[in-house]
Simulated assay, not measured.
Amino acid sequence: MGFEALKKIKANHFAQVYLLLGTEVFLMKEVREAIITHALNEEEHDFNLSFYDMEEQSVDIAIEDAETLPFMGERRVVVISNPFFLTGEKNKSKVEHNMDRFLSYIQAAAPYTILVIQAPYEKLDERKKMVKQLKQEAELIVTKPLEERELKQWMKEKAEQYGAQLTDDAAEELLKVAGVNLSVLSQELSKMAMYIGASEQEISVEIVKKLAAKSMEHSVFELIEKMVQRKIDEALELFYELIRNNEEPIKLHALIANQFRLLYQVKDLSEQGYSQQKVAGLLRVHPYRVKLAAQQAGHYNREELMKMMEELAEADYLMKSGKIDKQLAMEMLLIKLAPL
């Protein structure tokens, strides 16, 4: 993400046009809110802040607003969302957009307006003149899923916003427990900062273990970790705990199968010489998940993982065909998988 651009925004140094591009919508919202917060006083929002959805409204209306002088203030902020016309997508709505007017504005943006273009896409259509001009004139901030280093930096900055310090070990533990969803991580950090209060300034590993809500994915990861370590009794206990929490055996089976499939794919690609970052891109999985999968996959060879997937497929058939009780099928599966 454009951390430097975000620092400029917080220092009240604004571009006239921002292009927020990427699929990490939580980050996109954070950048947008930072622009609004630092560019306008709260009482100005009613007069000088506007939002336009390009799937429902014409870009002409947004540009007309951007060209209008601010009322009782120095700046106006105009936010455009879903600009599908910057991609290769066909127009799914009946709204007509005047691209010539949009292009003219980008080339000579109003000095009193901050135009924010939210493009929640992986990429734009680089063949279009509008896209080329926009990338040349606008401040581009890419909001894609963060790499592990960026993710931990973001977590520490978020903790500081809540008045706390996050240790390196605690950041690692929280990622394992809560996963990589930024919205979830933000909520967890807010909760922990409130818990420790002003007396303690540090969120430690102990605080994370005590307070963080475990994601279903983490529970399954933990279960597989016990299987990797050949601790079948502890793996079964984790399974029974999930059942007591009313989790469906078929759902648990699907998550376990997905994880073992990931282990096989990561191992296969790694043995072909691909880096973890490249593997993450090929599998469309967050790099941190690939890192954890690589650690677990190291305990098996490809033949063992293939055998496990065959056992998983057999259990799936038995459960869905009603040939065996679902919980019993899962118990038998875990017992079979652990010694492999």
Rank of each mutant, 00 (worst) to 15 (best):
N181R: 11
A171C: 04
E188L: 04
I196V: 13
L174W: 07
G179S: 01
L174C: 05
G197P: 03
L182K: 00
A178T: 05
V180W: 05
L182E: 03
D169M: 10
K191S: 10
G197Q: 13
L175I: 10
K191Y: 11
A178Y: 06
M192A: 04
A178M: 03
L175H: 04
L182P: 01
K176N: 15
N181G: 05
T167W: 00
T167D: 13
L175P: 08
L182Y: 07
K176Q: 14
L182V: 00
V177G: 11
I196D: 02
A178L: 04
A193F: 06
E172S: 14
Q187L: 13
G179V: 03
A193H: 02
M194C: 09
Y195R: 03
K176I: 12
G179I: 03
A198T: 14
V180H: 04
A198F: 11
L185I: 03
L182Q: 03
L182D: 04
K191M: 11
G179P: 01
I196C: 05
A198Q: 14
K191V: 09
G179L: 06
A170T: 06
E172L: 13
L189Q: 04
Y195A: 10
L182H: 02
S190Q: 15
M194I: 14
D168T: 09
E188T: 01
V177E: 11
L174E: 05
M194Q: 12
V184N: 13
E188A: 01
M192N: 03
Q187D: 12
S183C: 04
S183K: 14
L189I: 04
L175T: 07
K176C: 13
A178C: 09
S186L: 03
K176W: 14
A193Y: 02
S183L: 15
M192I: 00
